[in-house]
Design a protein around this nucleic acid. Sequence first.
DNA 1: AAAAGTATTTGACGCGGTGTCAAGAATGTG
DNA 2: CACATTCTTGACACCGCGTCAAATACTTTT
Lengths: 198, 198
Amino acid sequence: MRPREFDHDDVLRIAFDQFWRKGVRGTSLSDIARDAGVQRGSLYNAFGSKEALFLAAYERYASEYLGSLQEVLGSGSLRARLTAYFDAAIKNFRSGSPPRGCPTTRGLMELGAAEGEGLDENARQAFADLVARITGLLKNALSDGVKRGEFSGDPAIAALHIVTVTRGLAVLERAFGDEAELRKIAKHTVDLVLGKGR
Amino acid sequence: MRPREFDHDDVLRIAFDQFWRKGVRGTSLSDIARDAGVQRGSLYNAFGSKEALFLAAYERYASEYLGSLQEVLGSGSLRARLTAYFDAAIKNFRSGSPPRGCPTTRGLMELGAAEGEGLDENARQAFADLVARITGLLKNALSDGVKRGEFSGDPAIAALHIVTVTRGLAVLERAFGDEAELRKIAKHTVDLVLGKGR
DNA sequence: AAAAGTATTTGACGCGGTGTCAAGAATGTG
DNA sequence: CACATTCTTGACACCGCGTCAAATACTTTT
């Protein structure tokens, strides 16, 4: 059989960068094809559809991002872990120029915009899955904190609260683009969760 | 001059409903024209562009929504106000069937997807403006709370925190669609802000 | 080594969405 | 009654998505 003339992973990286910068709907396969030096039809042949290509590219990103969060949430005092977590998240939102925002949050809010297929549902699950995994990591860190006496409270609801604030930060980033304010809110949240002043 | 054959406000309402349900990009002017019993060209004549139509429709929604929040945040104990605020927000996200999510949050995350014009910037400002006004209402309520001894802390940062959580709830709504969980997070946030347990 | 088989590439097509334009239609005004 | 003004209507160019058949390049079989 005829060999492929492009690298599968290169295309995924290039595609995700475009999706990240311009949104899924805002990115055309022509854009990706041009950037990757590939014919548009070849992308359909290799991936099947725009959504399938996005999903493959997103999975790549998700596992990488989750890995980096796992690292920062895995060692140090609870306060240090949570601070590093928010730092990593904000850094992620503010990466690129102009900043690209949070791919997961942006993807989630783009759902239901596509009315046709059930592909939407696959994407929703992929996004929800990453959010759930991040919540799990936070819960683990908080549970460790309970054991060490750094935190008293329900790790499950606290993790949910933190992940909610994180999504909110991703939204505020789009609205105001003020990184200092994002950090202020993040610090306040850590203080609140850890019970500063008690 | 020839009189217009449709009602300006009717079209705005119909258009916003579509934008809300399917997103700005996911809604075509043909859809709106069909629904409103108007020719597509007439919409361009009356509003100029899809973005301008959206902005006009959004302003309508924004002032209405802001008014309802102003009401619930204006009377009662601080706890009652914040609880009612979250109730109103969640009810808003979950309105329609299927639920349509938060228009502001969805709109914000759709930005930058349109790469062409500076219209994006107008929309961003409209969204950011509503978020800022809501933050102002929250700050007022919290300041009242300080006066009455119901709250001790910085109203500004607390308001920012609450508005961030609210945006986060809008995102989680898309991810999980679990209203009970949203309410749980909202209640936890109120408890945290008001210093339950202290 | 030649032929058959297989997967990829390429270019053309249909469909639908955006935005523009000129021509037609309906009113107010002199 | 004619005129100007505004709205409406339908046609057009352009672009994005997804599909298809034909051409191409490599592997396997004989």
